[in-house]
Structures are given as structure tokens and as C-alpha cells.
């Protein structure tokens, strides 16, 4: 039986009828038509589906869509510095070559945003600890970590997330 669920996604309130056995990931990608959030492993190992739910980064593949009733969800589609302007974190990922195939990138950017909100001045090991649940199979993570640290540096210079 479907339930009517309303949630705020990237600042916009949406109402969807969803069965209880659908994950938030599937709801966002299908009913929500927001395919920026990626489905990698679908069992909470890879972090490609990371979204920020009520301020906390979670694997959307391990959240039921109906649990998002009343929740505020941030996905990669909502990240920008203005119309047609990339988000600070996206800019740094481009500058530092922090993406290769790009499949893990939306999840890592969301995780980075959650990290920098909590800790705008992370050490390299804090960055690595924070993104441990975001698996990238192209890179050695070095450029990703560089990009995160560069975003943090800009943040300290007064730019905002």
C-alpha cells in the first residue's frame, strides 16, 4: 500500500505516493527524477548514494523513502553557488582533477559538504576518515583529498558552502 510522503528536497517541498519497501535512493531517482544521486552497490558499502538528511550524511539506499516524511533532503542537484555557477566544492574538484569517471563524485561532494559544515578546518587524516565510506575505483583518492582541503581553505577565506 502506498503512502503519501512529503519532504523538502533541495529547498522544494514535494509530495509523493510511495510504497514502504522503496528506498529513499529509488524514490529520489525515479519518482523525484533526481538522477544525480547514484546507485552503486545499493547495500551501504560505496557511498555513491550519499545525501544529507536533516543535516546528516546518510546512504540513501539504506533509508526507506517513507522515513523521509517531514525531512529535509539535500542532493547534488541542489549544490551551486548561484544560477549556472558550480558549488565551491565542485569548483575545487574541477581545479584539482578530483573526478575521473565521476560516478562517486556526487556522493563525495555531499559527504564533503557535511564534513566541512561540521569541521571547516579538517586535517588530511580527518578528510580521509570522513570519506572512508565513499569508494572511488578510478583514483588513488589523492586528488579528491586535495580538492576537499582546497575547498576548506577557501571556506576559511570567507567563501560559503
Amino acid at each position: 500500500m502506498k503512502r503519501l510522503v512529503s519532504m523538502t528536497v533541495n529547498g522544494e517541498e514535494i509530495e509523493l505516493a510511495i510504497p514502504p519497501y522503496r528506498t529513499l535512493l529509488d524514490v529520489l531517482r525515479n519518482e523525484g527524477r533526481l538522477t544525480g544521486t547514484k546507485k552503486g552497490c545499493d547495500v551501504g558499502d560505496c557511498g555513491a548514494c550519499t545525501v544529507i538528511m536533516d543535516g546528516s550524511p546518510v546512504n540513501s539506499c539504506l533509508v526507506l523513502g517513507i522515513e523521509a516524511e517531514g525531512a529535509t533532503i539535500e542532493t547534488i542537484e541542489g549544490q551551486h553557488a548561484g544560477p549556472d555557477l558550480p558549488h565551491l566544492i565542485q569548483e575545487k574538484f574541477m581545479d584539482h582533477g578530483g573526478a575521473q569517471c565521476g560516478f562517486c563524485t556526487p556522493g563525495i561532494i555531499m559527504m564533503t559538504k557535511a564534513l566541512l559544515k561540521e569541521n571547516p578546518n579538517p586535517t588530511e587524516s580527518e578528510v580521509r576518515f570522513a570519506i572512508a565510506g565513499n569508494i572511488c575505483r578510478c583514483t588513488g583518492y589523492a586528488k579528491i583529498v586535495d580538492a576537499v582541503l582546497a575547498a576548506a581553505e577557501d571556506l576559511r577565506k570567507g567563501r560559503t558552502l
Binding site: 551501504g44 557511498g47 550519499t50 546528516s56 550524511p57 546518510v58 546512504n59 539504506l62 533509508v63 559527504m111 557535511a114 570522513a130 572512508a132 565510506g133 565513499n134
Partner: peptide
């Protein structure tokens, strides 16, 4: 235990 994303849940 797992990742921060997992531990948040």
C-alpha cells in the same frame, strides 16, 4: 563501524 553515513543510521 562502517562509514559515517552508516553510523548516522
Amino acid at each position: 563501524l562502517g562509514s559515517i553515513q552508516v553510523r548516522n543510521r
